[in-house]
Simulated scan of single mutants.
Amino acid sequence: MKFWQNLSWIETDQQIECARFAEEVGFDGVMHGDHFCFPDVIRSRYPMSPDGAAPMPTDWAYPDLWVTMAAQAAVTSRLRFAAAIYTMATRHPIVTAKATGTLALLSGNRAIVGVAPGWMKEEFDAAGIPFERRGARLDEAIRATRKLWGGGAVEHHGEFYDFGPVRLEPMPGYALPIYIGGSGEVAWKRAARLGDGWIGGGDAPEDVPELLATLKRLRAEAGRADQPFETILPLTRPASVDELKRLHAAGMDATVAYPFMLTIGPRSTIDEKKRAMEAFARDYIRAFA
Rank of each mutant, 00 (worst) to 15 (best):
M1A: 04
N6C: 13
L7K: 05
W9K: 03
I16T: 14
C18T: 06
A19D: 11
R20K: 15
F21L: 10
E23Q: 03
E24G: 01
D28I: 04
G29F: 12
V30D: 11
H32I: 11
G33H: 07
D34W: 03
D34Q: 13
H35W: 05
H35T: 08
C37M: 01
P39I: 04
D40N: 08
V41S: 04
R43F: 00
R43Y: 02
R43D: 07
R45M: 12
Y46P: 12
M48L: 14
A54K: 00
A54Q: 01
P57W: 02
P57M: 15
T58M: 01
D59F: 00
D59V: 02
A61C: 04
D64L: 00
L65S: 12
T68E: 13
M69P: 06
A74M: 05
A74K: 01
L79D: 10
R80Q: 06
R80N: 00
F81I: 13
A82I: 07
A83D: 04
M88G: 08
A89Q: 15
A89P: 10
T90S: 14
H92E: 05
V95Y: 07
T96Y: 09
K98S: 10
K98I: 05
T102C: 09
T102I: 10
A104R: 05
L106N: 05
L106D: 14
G108D: 10
V115F: 09
E123L: 03
D125W: 06
A127K: 07
P130F: 08
E132A: 09
R133F: 07
G135E: 08
G135L: 12
A136V: 07
E140S: 01
I142S: 11
R143P: 00
G152M: 03
A153I: 01
E159M: 08
F160N: 06
D162V: 02
E169Q: 00
E169F: 01
P170N: 06
M171R: 02
M171K: 00
P172M: 02
Y174V: 07
Y174N: 12
P177M: 11
I178C: 00
G181A: 11
G181C: 02
G181I: 02
G182N: 00
V186D: 09
A187F: 05
K189Y: 02
A191G: 14
A192L: 10
A192M: 03
L194N: 10
L194Q: 14
L194S: 15
G195S: 03
G195K: 00
I199G: 03
G200D: 05
D203L: 14
E210D: 15
L211T: 02
L212M: 01
T214A: 11
T214D: 09
L215A: 12
L215Q: 03
R219M: 05
A220C: 05
G223S: 08
G223M: 01
G223I: 06
R224G: 12
P228W: 09
L233M: 15
P238R: 11
A239E: 02
L244V: 14
A249K: 12
A254K: 06
T255K: 15
Y258A: 11
P259N: 11
S268I: 00
I270F: 11
K274Y: 13
A276F: 10
A276W: 11
M277V: 02
F280I: 14
A281K: 04
A289N: 09
A289D: 11
